[in-house]
Structure formats: C-alpha cells, structure tokens
C-alpha cells in the first residue's frame, strides 16, 4: 500500500492510504497519525485520522510545506510495517431499533428515499438479501464494529463492521440528504454505520436511537466530563438491541446522571482477526461481558 499525499491548500497535507475501505488501510492511517503525533514536528497543529486516509494541518510560517511532506513520507515505511496491535476499548451501545422518532422523521422525508413504500430498515434488509427487518437487526447487532473515524460533526463516530467483506452490510445513502435527523440516531450509509451526535442534516439510513449521550458540550454527563466526545478512532462497539421499556429506563438513568456505560479495556490484533474473525470477536465479547 503506497500512500498518496496531496496538499490541501497551504495549511493541510492530505494522505490517502487506500481508495477503498479496509481494516488494513485504517490501521496504516492510525499508525501514521500516531507516529506523526509522537514525532512532535514543529508547526504541526492538528492530526486527523480517517477511515482509509488522514490529514495533517500545519502552520506554513513555522514549517515549509515541502519539508513536512518529506518528513511524512519518511515515516511511511515504518507505519505500514508496524505490528497492527491496538490497546483499545470495547463498549456496548444500547439501540432501540424501529423507534417512533426516527420513524416519524423517515416518513417526513419519504420522497428523498429510494423506496418511498418501505421504511429504512425494510429497505436495508431487502438490498442486503436478508429475509426481513428482524434478520437485518440481528446481522447489524450480532458482531462488533470498529470506530474508523470520528468527525463530520462533533463526536460523531463512523463504524466499520468486523466481518468478512461479503457479509458486510451495505446500504446506499438517501437520494437527497434530509434536513433533519433526531439526535443519537443510528444511521448507515455505504458500508459505515454512525451515531448522529447532534440533531441536524443527514443522508444515512435511520435504524434506531440510542439513549446514551456521546457528546456533551456542557460536560455534565458523568462519563463526558473530561472529554466532550466519547469516541476515539480504534474503539470497538457492540450494539445491543433494547426494548422500549429498557430504553425508557436508560433515559431515566441518563436524566438523573447515573447512567453507566459498559466500557472495558481490550486488545485487538489485526493479524489474529484476519486469521480467525469468529474467535477474535468471541473473545472480544468475553472481554465486554467481563468473563
């Protein structure tokens, strides 16, 4: 994999690890950004990893663009050879699939959708050749997902499913983006799922909502007092389908600020995963459930 570098104006270097999405490309992007961070290069002001690419913002008054480019290129060999093992976290995110709020919203924007006569979940099940909504929810929530990027808006995670490519759920985005999406909607577009951290425009299909805040600019939520944003690239997420009653109980706990998310430290090895996805994921589940 050879990284394609390009200047984004006079203040950014953009680096595309791969045109297509893969965990290998993500890991190279993450190890490159970690290496750039560790190098502490004068004039580098922001380092942003993405799914299969990354971006470095710099101050051209402090480092010449060409010099920074050379420095980044010199790191490429080490990053792509580095052992892709990650000390990370696994967390469980409750999802109330087929909730009334995303349903009300998707009905308002039916004319922007590929299939105005189906819900987003019905359409997603159909285009993935699954029997029905229940099968789709099972496919969505049974295996873990990787946070491969954080962004678009504050704290929004992009998630990549940890299964063989042929099993990956793929759903086109809306034909035209909606102007509204409920806060904490679980969305999906292309091969990525996401959680909308704030209410606003969006083009991803809507599957449900989580009661669990993931971004808090007021820093009052117990687990968001140090960092406003919950997610970091490299986090692993397991969706847990919950009922309306469970959702309501979680909301009550969130409102009283006594909601405790399930988050455990975890180790992930890309080579072990590629060798045996089933048992790697099973071990991650054991870690999550404290066994």
């Amino acid at each position: 994999m050879s990284i394609r570098f390009s200047f984004g104006g006079d203040e950014h270097i953009f680096a595309e690890v791969s045109e297509e999405m893969s965990l290998e490309a993500f890991f190279t992007s993450l190890s490159m950004t970690n290496a750039v961070k560790a190098a502490g290069i004068t004039g580098v002001t922001e380092i942003c990893p993405a799914n299969a690419s990354f971006q470095v913002k710099f101050d051209p008054d402090r480092i010449k663009p060409g010099d920074l480019l050379k420095e980044l290129q010199s790191m490429e060999g080490a990053a792509s050879k580095s052992d892709a093992t990650l000390q990370t976290r696994i967390m469980e995110i409750p999802v109330f699939y087929q909730d009334p709020w995303t349903h009300e919203t998707l009905m308002r924007f039916r004319e922007r959708h590929q299939n105005p006569n189906a819900t987003d979940l019905e359409y997603a099940a159909e285009v993935n050749g699954l029997g029905g909504v229940e099968d789709f929810i099972k496919a969505h929530s049974s295996q873990p997902w990787f946070v491969s990027m954080v962004g678009f808006v504050a704290g929004l995670p992009f998630l990549y499913q940890m299964v063989e490519r042929k099993r990956q759920l793929q759903v086109p985005k809306y034909l035209r983006p909606r102007t509204d999406t409920p806060k904490l909607t679980i969305g999906h577009g292309g091969c990525f799922s996401c959680i909308y951290s704030v209410r606003g425009a969006g083009g991803y299909q809507m599957f449900g909502v989580t009661p669990m805040p993931i971004y808090d600019p007021t820093q009052k939520v117990s687990y968001l007092q140090d960092e406003m944003c919950l997610f970091k690239p490299g986090d692993i997420v397991k969706w847990k389908s919950v009922t309306r009653d469970e959702y309501d109980a979680a909301i009550e706990a969130v409102d009283a600020n006594r909601y405790e998310p399930v988050i455990r430290p975890a180790t992930f090895s890309l080579s072990a995963f590629n060798k045996d996805m089933g048992s790697t994921n099973a071990k991650l589940m054991e870690t999550l459930h404290g066994r």
């Binding site: 984004g8 104006g9 203040e11 950014h12 953009f14 595309e16 791969s18 045109e19 297509e20 999405m21 893969s22 942003c48 993405a50 799914n51 299969a52 690419s53 990354f54 971006q55 913002k57 990027m149 962004g151 678009f152 992009f158 490519r165 086109p172 985005k173 577009g189 292309g190 091969c191 990525f192």
Partner: peptide, 19 residues
C-alpha cells in the same frame, strides 16, 4: 472503490480540509 458509494463524486469518507 469498496465503501465509497455509487456516485462518481463519492469517496470513502475522509477528512475535509478548511477551504
């Protein structure tokens, strides 16, 4: 490419520089 989406203007979601 895989993960990019079907429109020719689509890419695998990436960072957007200012400007």
């Amino acid at each position: 490419p895989f993960g990019a989406g079907s429109n020719p203007s689509n890419i695998v979601d990436a960072c957007y520089p200012y400007g």
